[in-house]
């Protein structure tokens, strides 16, 4: 599947054209991340396994961030009805993707639908600063309003 180049790209909070972003890069969808959601664990889809380590795009909603300015935010398939960073007993949905931007940026698009481009990283990993555990990440990422 291909995707057209988003009109406005935000890199490190600055509107920019990404040299790395081009026609034809792989588009991931939230409903294609896992092939199994069993009570004893989840399994990545074959597509996620194949694309691990390569640049991909995915569209979702930017969750309200931990800090107003960060290189880190959570992407969810639907707008969040909870604010897990605000409430201690609110849980993230199971199928989130954690986004690590290339640079620290003001996360002004919280709540909005965004398309993110970055290198797909898979497997359980704890953020050294926040302790946030994620299964899927986009590294060196940039995003634009979708």
């Amino acid at each position: 599947m291909t995707v057209s180049l988003p009109r406005r790209l935000v890199l490190g909070g600055v509107l920019a054209t990404l040299p790395g972003l081009a026609w034809g890069r792989e588009m991931l969808r939230f409903d294609g991340l896992y092939k199994k959601y069993g009570v004893r664990g989840m399994e990545f889809s074959d597509r996620v396994r194949q694309l691990a380590g390569t640049p991909v795009d995915i569209t979702g909603y930017m969750a309200p961030p931990l800090k107003a300015e960060s290189n880190f935010f959570v992407l969810s398939s639907e707008p969040l009805s909870i604010c897990p960073f605000c409430e201690s007993d609110a849980d993230w949905p199971v199928d989130i993707v954690v986004i690590y931007l290339r640079h620290v940026a003001p996360l002004t698009s919280a709540g909005a639908r965004v398309t993110v481009s970055g290198r797909l990283d898979t497997g359980s990993w704890s953020d050294p600063d926040t302790g946030f555990v994620s299964l899927l990440r986009l590294m060196d990422a940039a995003y634009a309003l979708a």
């Binding site: 969750a63 309200p64 961030p65 639907e78 707008p79 969040l80 009805s81 909870i82 604010c83 960073f85 605000c86 002004t108 698009s109 919280a110 709540g111 909005a112």
Partner: peptide
């Protein structure tokens, strides 16, 4: 899902 998280923390 009646309300969703707003752009800033603790708003819906």
């Amino acid at each position: 899902v009646p309300a969703v998280a707003g752009a800033t923390a603790n708003t819906f």
